[in-house]
Computed example of a mutant assay.
Amino acid sequence: MGYRTLDVQEGEGRVTVRLDRPEQRNAIDLDMVRDLHAVCEDLERNPRVMILTGGTDGVFAAGADIRQLLERRTDDALAGINLRIFQRIRELPMPTVAAIDGHALGGGAELAYACDLRIATDRAVFGQPEAALGIIAGAGATWRLPRLVGESLAKEMLLTGRRLNAAEAHRFGLVTAVVPPEELPARANALVDRMLRNGPLALRLSKLAVDAPEGAHPALELVAQAVLFESEDKRERMTAFLDGRRR
């Protein structure tokens, strides 16, 4: 299908989604929100891993579209326009990887936080400038960022506008790797390749268990493991492992 603000490419076991509003520095507007919902609908029907990127031109996403934010009112805030699409991305069945080159600010950073894993180039920058605009980071940063980097650093970013460069983001665990821009697509795909060597149902249930609320444990793990113990994929993989050891 056609997208107005995204470039979507199919690959083996994966979909690469590139934010594509270069003149607006990939600012997230209503058209992009609609396009992202369409991608999610496809990935919910036919689960694959998603790589989400802005490309390697020095910008991931400069935030929500300020012109649209300026016109939004109480009902728009309560509708959670960006929050809901970011949460939908978080809840996709298969893992998601944000491949970040350049600035990921405001809503752009929150979009990256919604993904399961993040890798970045050495010129990546993360920040939450919302308070300087008289609003809060209302699309996930207030609870996702403390879990990713710790409460104190998250509060400093949210309350003072402190930005993290790529090295700091790696040191604090926000990203798992920092690479040169030209290596970003290959490294993102290599990470996905490693995931796809594993059992697809095991991937889905592992993600579900990690993201489940605390009260769901350990019952969720017991049920998930019970399902996997009966799967043909588990039998085939364990049999192949034992056959390999016998040789």
Results as ranks from 00 to 15, higher is better:
145 L>W: 06
146 P>M: 02
107 G>Y: 03
136 I>F: 14
74 T>P: 03
84 R>Q: 14
59 V>K: 04
84 R>I: 04
76 D>R: 03
142 T>R: 13
48 R>N: 02
70 L>N: 12
123 R>P: 13
55 G>E: 02
138 G>A: 15
75 D>T: 08
93 P>D: 03
51 I>G: 06
60 F>N: 13
113 Y>N: 10
58 G>Q: 05
85 I>D: 00
138 G>P: 11
92 L>Y: 01
84 R>A: 13
125 V>R: 15
60 F>P: 12
124 A>R: 07
125 V>Y: 01
101 D>P: 00
140 G>A: 06
78 L>H: 14
65 D>I: 11
86 F>W: 11
115 C>R: 10
121 T>Q: 05
76 D>T: 03
90 R>E: 12
82 N>C: 12
106 G>C: 11
68 Q>S: 14
89 I>T: 07
61 A>I: 02
128 Q>R: 06
100 I>V: 15
129 P>W: 04
89 I>E: 04
79 A>I: 00
142 T>L: 06
123 R>A: 05
127 G>L: 13
60 F>Q: 10
79 A>D: 12
108 G>D: 01
132 A>L: 15
126 F>D: 07
121 T>I: 07
143 W>F: 08
93 P>M: 02
58 G>P: 11
62 A>D: 12
108 G>Q: 05
113 Y>V: 06
107 G>V: 11
68 Q>P: 11
123 R>W: 03
103 H>N: 11
48 R>A: 07
141 A>S: 09
71 E>D: 14
125 V>E: 07
138 G>D: 13
125 V>C: 11
93 P>C: 02
80 G>T: 01
142 T>C: 02
96 T>M: 00
147 R>Y: 01
121 T>R: 02
86 F>C: 04
145 L>N: 02
82 N>Q: 08
70 L>V: 14
146 P>F: 00
102 G>D: 06
108 G>L: 01
47 P>N: 05
110 E>N: 14
107 G>Q: 13
85 I>L: 06
58 G>L: 04
148 L>R: 13
115 C>K: 07
57 D>A: 12
62 A>H: 10
114 A>E: 04
129 P>A: 09
56 T>N: 06
95 P>V: 04
76 D>Y: 11
133 L>Y: 14
87 Q>S: 13
106 G>Y: 01
60 F>C: 08
131 A>K: 12
133 L>H: 13
115 C>F: 08
69 L>T: 09
59 V>N: 15
64 A>I: 15
134 G>I: 10
50 M>H: 01
80 G>K: 02
117 L>M: 14
148 L>G: 03
144 R>M: 09
54 G>F: 01
93 P>K: 05
103 H>I: 05
93 P>T: 01
85 I>K: 01
73 R>G: 04
101 D>L: 00
